[in-house]
């Protein structure tokens, strides 16, 4: 069990049988008054956010959350299939559950799948992934337009800004937390 005094940004708690993460937190206490724990929470399954003020005697259950390393196999229609490489157990998540993760997800990638009890609810990508550039304007040497980046598209369809020397067919490293270009990768 957690009590209100355990609340802080990033804490995961269970309310009405569902897992929530605290996204904003503020402690306040008027003079001679009671402690108020003002929070903003996100439902980890539905993504719905709400704000709520708690008091010292409020208690919360710990959600049964577990991360397991799994490999992305393939997508069929709306279902994205992952496999536990030690037990060969397979599960799938929907396009909606994966959201922006799809910008960086490619076949055979190893990810952390988050389970709430038996149910897969989210994934965490590796911080850095290497993706192939599929669309890019050629590099015009001596370009004096002054722009120091250009837009390219990678194999997942994701678009980002990169330095002008990156060309179609190159592999580039991207930070999955920000979607930013890091470097060109030689293979």
């Amino acid at each position: 069990m957690y009590t209100a005094s355990d609340l802080r940004k990033g804490l995961k708690i269970q309310i009405d049988g569902e897992p929530y993460i605290v996204t904003e937190f503020d402690f306040s206490k008027p003079g001679k008054g009671q402690a108020l724990y003002r929070t903003k929470m996100r439902n980890m399954i539905t993504g719905i956010q709400f704000t709520q003020t708690y008091r010292s005697n409020d208690k919360f259950e710990r959600p049964n959350l577990e991360e397991r390393k799994m490999q992305f196999l393939y997508a069929q229609d709306d279902a994205y299939h992952f496999m536990d490489t030690s037990s060969y157990e397979q599960i799938f998540l929907s396009r909606e559950q994966l959201g922006d993760n799809l910008n960086f997800l490619v076949d055979n990638m190893e990810v952390e799948v988050l389970f709430f009890g038996e149910r897969a609810i989210d994934i965490t990508l590796p911080t850095f992934v290497n993706l192939e550039v599929t669309v890019a304007d050629p590099w015009a040497k001596g370009d004096t337009s002054g722009s120091d980046t250009k837009p390219v598209t990678v194999q997942t369809g994701f678009q980002l800004q990169v330095p002008p020397f990156v060309e179609k067919g190159d592999k580039i490293q991207i930070d999955t937390r920000t979607g930013a270009y890091i470097t060109r990768v030689k293979e």
Binding site: S28, P30, G33, Q34, L36, R38, T53
Partner: peptide
């Protein structure tokens, strides 16, 4: 609700 209103609306 005195404390809560004081903190959120008045202060």
């Amino acid at each position: 609700s005195f404390d809560e209103i004081l903190v959120t609306e008045v202060e």
